[in-house]
């Protein structure tokens, strides 16, 4: 393979991965900025989303309807979790509570999947077969489709947030919870919406990842961490920030291991985050 070929493939892989991270980060940033909580089980929602698709496909549903159904189920699950577990209780340390509850959830959900589906990896049908030529290099079609779906989800989310009443209320609530409460926005409804959307996005990311790669009960931990790191990188609550952060991380993951050792690649995100925080404590696109 020519070096250009290698570069291009690594870049496409990086971008595809990066977009999945972006989807995770978008959900997490919505949840974090609107609810003020750290939802560490977000990776398990991603994993559940992928397994739900696996189950539904096994029951004879087509891949795309299965993905849509899985997103819907996860959105409902998100609402249930918000109402039942994450809604802040008075007089508690909100962040600590959310971390503990979500860690508990992580344990429960992963082991439930292990019990039901076993530890072995599973796979989903491919999104598409074959590859297209870009600049003379063969790029698998499924990567391109995964990128396409992620972009579509992002655009829809953006339109929703900027053009609908609910979306605008969510933005207001994320920027200033008390202020928007005084203006008659119900914070609990905003939290429910944030969890529903966040979980649906995670399910989509999980399903796409499952189709590109494989399913495995512990598959959620890494994207969850990446999503959180993207938030720190890009700035809390910023959609363009999540985009840039996601692409940076995706490219580090996709390209660096090809040309340097994977050990270097694994230190990359930490170094980048530290550098960004030193010079821009609120993230690349965050503001104080």
């Amino acid at each position: 393979m020519s070096s250009l070929d290698l570069w291009l493939q690594a870049t496409v892989n990086g971008i595809a991965l990066g977009w999945l991270y972006v989807l995770m980060a978008l959900g997490l940033t919505l949840i974090l900025s609107i609810m003020g909580i750290l939802q560490l089980a977000h990776g398990e929602i991603y994993m559940l989303g992928a397994y739900a698709v696996h189950y539904l496909v096994g029951r004879g549903l087509g891949l795309y309807p299965a993905i849509a159904t899985s997103m819907f189920i996860m959105a409902v699950l998100g609402i249930i979790l918000e109402r039942g577990l994450f809604r802040p209780r008075s007089g508690r340390e909100v962040v600590l509570c959310s971390i503990v509850i979500s860690t508990g959830l992580t344990l429960i959900l992963t082991s439930a999947i292990v019990v039901i589906f076993g530890l072995y990896t599973k796979s989903l049908p491919l999104l598409a077969t074959g590859s297209v030529e870009i600049f003379g290099a063969a790029v698998p079609k499924d990567r391109i489709l995964a990128i396409g779906f992620s972009v579509l989800a992002l655009v829809l989310l953006y339109l929703f947030l900027k053009k609908t009443r609910l979306g605008l209320a969510m933005i207001a609530s994320a920027q200033n919870r008390e202020g928007s409460f005084l203006k008659g926005i119900n914070p609990n409804r905003m939290s429910m919406a944030a969890m529903a959307i966040g979980c649906a996005l995670a399910a989509l990311a999980g399903a796409l990842a499952g189709a590109i790669l494989q399913l495995q009960p512990y598959m959620g931990a890494l994207p969850m961490i990446k999503g959180l790191v993207i938030i720190v990188l890009g700035g809390l609550g910023s959609i363009p920030g999540a985009l840039i952060g996601g692409l940076i991380l995706g490219l580090i993951d996709g390209i660096v291991p090809v040309f340097f050792s994977p050990a270097v690649a694994s230190v990359g995100p930490l170094v980048v985050v530290i550098l960004v925080l030193l010079f821009r404590p609120k993230g690349l696109l965050g503001h104080d």
Partner: peptide, 12 residues
């Protein structure tokens, strides 16, 4: 297999 589930439930 059920151990993490028990621990998680206790935590919550």
């Amino acid at each position: 297999q059920y151990q993490p589930m028990i621990t998680g439930a206790i935590a919550i």
